[in-house]
Simulated scan of single mutants.
Amino acid sequence: MAHILFESQYGSTQQYAEELAQRLSTSAEPLRGAEVPSGTDPIIVMSYVHGPTLPAAAWIAEHAKELNLGSRPVAVAAVGMSLSDYARERDQVGHMLGSRADHVKRFYLPGRLNYSQLSGTHGKVMTGIITAIRLKPGKSDNDRAMISSYNQDVDWVDVDELGPIVAWAKRAG
């Protein structure tokens, strides 16, 4: 049975984790303070992406030795507001894991960003990011999507995107 650990700040990662747990007939547990589950069953670590912050990748790096990477199936599902193709191509999790990336399956899921619920600090950070992107020449599709959704509540959560993670977990388990 797969182990699902998650860190969610605004709810979309928790929504995915709970739906994934239901599909895999298991439970989803909070990542914060989590120990490495015993056994050899697959582990799926899910978290949000906020700029350079990705709790799932940090947790795996911190527990790499205990996870027995390369022997035990481990996956990360990063939930963010980048366009899915852009996120996969950029592979932020892979970069964060460095040499460990070859031993971790990586998935990218579209999230939710409700500007109306952002903390003051997070709102200011987003204003700075969008201002910089607006000044950038040669904007990508991802840049344009960020600009067009700025200061709006946007929900791109799509639980159908969990299909590849379910398939991976069933093959790995």
Rank of each mutant, 00 (worst) to 15 (best):
A172H: 07
A17K: 04
I165C: 01
D143Q: 07
H103A: 15
M1C: 03
V104S: 05
A75D: 06
F6W: 14
G111M: 11
R32I: 00
H122A: 14
N114D: 15
Q117I: 00
G98W: 05
I43D: 00
P110A: 04
V93E: 00
A58G: 06
S140R: 05
W59D: 01
G128D: 09
A77F: 08
Q92V: 11
H95F: 12
Q152H: 15
Y86T: 12
Q117D: 11
A78T: 06
E29K: 10
D153V: 02
S12C: 13
G51T: 08
M126C: 05
S47A: 15
A145Q: 08
G70I: 03
K65E: 12
T121C: 11
Q9V: 12
R32Q: 07
G70V: 07
I165R: 10
F107K: 04
P73I: 10
W168K: 05
G173P: 04
E18V: 10
E18Y: 02
M96I: 04
A21E: 01
M46H: 03
K170H: 09
D158K: 14
V74I: 15
N151E: 13
S116F: 08
H63R: 15
S71F: 15
V166C: 03
T53F: 04
R144W: 05
R144N: 10
S99D: 12
N142V: 09
I165Y: 07
R32Y: 06
G70T: 03
G11K: 14
G80F: 06
A34G: 08
L118D: 00
G138C: 06
H63E: 01
Y86M: 05
A172M: 15
Y86N: 09
P37I: 02
G123D: 03
M1Q: 11
S25C: 14
K105R: 11
T121P: 12
G138R: 01
L162I: 06
I43E: 03
Q92L: 11
D153L: 02
I130Y: 07
R112K: 15
V93P: 08
V157N: 02
I165G: 03
Q22S: 05
G123P: 02
Q14D: 00
R112L: 14
A2T: 13
A78K: 06
R32E: 12
H63F: 04
K136H: 07
